[in-house]
């Protein structure tokens, strides 16, 4: 029946204003950092005498910040590739398989998303020391890849679920080898899921802090770790500048996806569980 909610069925008015207040609460800290980032002082405050882009320049000129930016990219790119390799292999292999074993494996693949970060921290602190990869680039990449794995699995299996179940059989009845069937018929259909998985894995690594704090020391200083260290000294406005840039990038991405109607699936959580 075409019902256009004629009269409020419940105390809807109250719910609407509460809902709006919650959304304001959610974006409040994000909005607050914008004026802080233009502060003209070296400590955190609202701008005094005028606006300044000082802290945006410091981000790229001060060695500590510049190096951590480069390190973060250097870790996140290979980590995301590795996560994609493992996650995609699993999803393709497990596609259309049923049974408790597959279900268990799927849940295990999501483990790095579900298990609290502190447990990973304790585990990898021991494990990486044991094999001599503590505070190493390789060890950090490996751990970040594992943390990004669940997002690859989630987005790839989401896009696999809309692929016709007989795709592989069909390709093979048309003469393709098993590998050709995968490569030429299945992968093209799930390219958006793959792209989304890669982006989420990258962002996960880019954001990772809890485990990184426990598996690195002087050698590896990623951007979040640099932020963390700077917070011990004072509330440096550089962090506000960084956050504003991240906000800008996110808004642009949101805008782009909603304008292009892109099929990139937005999963709720690109973040690790703090």
């Amino acid at each position: 029946m075409s019902a256009s909610s004629p009269r409020s069925l419940h105390p809807t008015r109250l719910a609407e204003s509460t809902g709006r207040a919650v959304v304001v609460f959610l974006v409040l800290p994000l909005v607050a950092i914008i004026p802080m980032s233009f502060s003209d002082t070296r400590y955190l405050s609202m701008p005094h005498d005028g606006l300044s882009t000082l802290h945006y320049w410091r981000l790229f000129s001060e060695p500590a910040w510049r190096d951590s930016l480069l390190q973060s990219v250097g870790v996140a790119l290979p980590a995301a590739c590795l996560a994609l390799l493992i996650g995609l292999s699993f999803c393709l292999g497990a596609w259309q398989r049923q049974g408790n074993m597959v279900r268990l494996l799927q849940i295990l693949m999501l483990g790095p998303l579900i298990v609290p970060g502190i447990i990973h921290a304790v585990a990898y602190h021991r494990a990486l020391s044991f094999i001599g990869l503590f505070d190493s680039f390789a060890g950090t990449v490996l751990v970040h890849a594992i943390k990004g794995l669940p997002f690859v699995v989630l987005s790839v299996s989401a896009s696999l679920s809309s692929v016709h179940p007989a795709t592989l059989q069909l390709a093979r009845s048309l003469g393709a080898s098993p590998a050709q069937a995968l490569w030429r018929t299945l992968l093209p259909q799930i390219r958006y899921g793959i792209a989304a998985g890669f982006i989420f894995a990258f962002v996960t690594s880019w954001d990772e802090i809890v485990v990184t704090l426990f598996i690195t020391s002087r050698n590896v200083i990623t951007l979040p770790k640099q932020i963390w260290q700077s917070l011990f000294l004072n509330l440096d406005p550089v962090v506000a500048a960084l956050g504003s840039l991240a906000l800008l990038a996110t808004l642009l991405a949101l805008l782009a996806t909603s304008l292009s109607g892109s099929r990139l699936r937005s999963l709720p959580s690109p973040n690790t569980i703090a």
């Binding site: 959610l26 974006v27 800290p29 994000l30 950092i33 962002v203 954001d207 802090i209 979040p224 932020i227 963390w228 917070l231 962090v239 506000a240 960084l242 956050g243 991240a246 906000l247 996110t250 808004l251 991405a253 949101l254 937005s266 709720p268 959580s269 690109p270 973040n271 703090a274």
Partner: peptide, 10 residues
Amino acid sequence: LLPLWISVLV
């Protein structure tokens, strides 16, 4: 959705 994309540190 916005807060999900901004580092919890920030």
